[in-house]
Design a protein around this nucleic acid. Sequence first.
DNA 1: ATGAAAGCGCTAACAC
DNA 2: GTGTTAGCGCTTTCAT
Lengths: 343, 343
Amino acid sequence: MAERGRRTHLTLRDVSEAAGVSEMTVSRVLRQQGDVSDKTRRKVEAAARMLGYVPNKIAGALASQRVNLVAVVVPSLSNLVFPEMLVGVQEVLDGTGLQPVVGSTDYDPRKEETTLFEMLSWRPSGVVVAGLEHTDASRAMLANAGCPVVEVMDVDGDPVDAAVGISHWRAGYTVGQEVAARGYRRVGVLGTKVAGDHRARKRVEGFERALGEAGIAIADRADYDGGSGFARGREMTAAMLDRTPDLDVLFYTNDLTAAGGLLLCLERGLDVGGALGLVGFNGFTLLDGLPRKLATVDSRRRQAGRIAARIIAGTHEFTSPDRRVELVPTFLPGDTLRDRHGL
Amino acid sequence: MAERGRRTHLTLRDVSEAAGVSEMTVSRVLRQQGDVSDKTRRKVEAAARMLGYVPNKIAGALASQRVNLVAVVVPSLSNLVFPEMLVGVQEVLDGTGLQPVVGSTDYDPRKEETTLFEMLSWRPSGVVVAGLEHTDASRAMLANAGCPVVEVMDVDGDPVDAAVGISHWRAGYTVGQEVAARGYRRVGVLGTKVAGDHRARKRVEGFERALGEAGIAIADRADYDGGSGFARGREMTAAMLDRTPDLDVLFYTNDLTAAGGLLLCLERGLDVGGALGLVGFNGFTLLDGLPRKLATVDSRRRQAGRIAARIIAGTHEFTSPDRRVELVPTFLPGDTLRDRHGL
DNA sequence: ATGAAAGCGCTAACAC
DNA sequence: GTGTTAGCGCTTTCAT
């Protein structure tokens, strides 16, 4: 076991004394900036390595007014979509010297406010925050953050600075159109109760609208709270089918519950992909390999993370003037929906 | 869109002038520390809120030599187990004023070294790092970190400071014993190629040992690289069963591939849980609701995250003197293994 | 190519 | 209960 806190950290001064040059020269060598003779450079590098010197970024950041941290604020880490977005952020940031700092808010706007305040007090080089719905105080903080702010995974709303992601409303609308075009008429929706999950809400709204335009109303609806998994999808599907047996299509706001529903329906011997249609949402590749390929929509969260990171790194070229990047949420028909009429 | 970087950040001085008191008094109010009269406090709070002042933690940290950051270094964010561990960390840290900073290493020891160096230069209040295998340089840095260092999700090895997690070797050993005790004799192993995944390697080693003690050798083995999902489990299982048709049990180092295998075997009409046994690893609750309850081992990653966070927050009481917390990896027999003989 | 001095924005320590 | 002073460990700027 290490003797923690045994001695104080080394400073530039220690390296400077060991190498016999000024602190300033050491600083230049370590940041590889400014002209230093090869001989001096080697001396300093040797001394730093030998002592095991680790620079103090706190002091460096204060002096240089530059911080290589990027704040990333998400509602949850348990919901797979957010780690996946994070993967995209990290991928891009990796080459840039920028570091993500992650905070999660449990879908609570007040907690988001606290988290943002906390993170902004580190004067990060950028902020990535999920969604466009924030308290007024949060919006004010973001507007004055003094760095790029990217709201990700949604573009339905009014961004503080930049926004990257799909339109969940339009994605839901597309699903609704597909469902209607395939001749389904008795529609069940399985969604979430979580008040802060605006994206799931928007998907359902778009979905309902498209159905409405085709003269179809939602026949049954159920909402769960807590985490989503196969078991939850099973329960809810069983309950809904028992309650409203004549449903001919089910729309789940999440692939995991959809997968649970799929398994249940297959066990019950239902004609999934024929008489009964199932659609999920998100496009989790880890589910490739279910007994049926689930119809779903790729929500492009990893790509959203990537672009957000590029915006912050300053390597993204906007094509529109309004700093908004709308990604296209590919509809993946799979084989849990029947064919479109006339196709 | 915000005009970013429009004006410079506010400082304590701005608040101090607006409130008509010294910077020091403002500082005391904002940190709720030291005695300040109610009248002054209110004046300062009003001024700070009105101006939208966000303290500069960089300066605060430098002056106070206290940093509320906790470095968390994991091999990957795509593999579900790490976000789950992170959830545990975040849960506990949330109450403490400490913030996790996450870095991922792609299972690459060199990248881990860089990431650690980067993070330690922020002088964090603690370090959580997955696993016990590091380069010498990494170990040296960790030993001199000057803060608690917790190696998580494994205890098979020699920790730098503290360690929390299950023994993957023993977990694998338990699985081996269970498999042998249930009369299986022709054993297939489906694992990973990833060189840096020491935990998966140790599970298989323990498993082999237990089998060896029962006079059983591994009959077939396959390793995949890249991400694990259902599809991968299907492919590998199909290939293995075709190659070695007389296998009577399959051990997967990951639940997701196991689930894929399970689905394939059921489709092939194999007697899963009877003539053919299947065991996964990790205990992903999101998979509850598969057609069969998968035999698996709960690897307690969330709990590991929680305890790691408590160690760093200083709220964990060690029961042993060696700062090692070994969690018990519950074996969950599910119903994809037949009963133990004599039970 | 190298060094000296000043100061980043805050807090510790001490006065009053 | 409030103010003053010094300085955290670096980098900026300017000198040489």
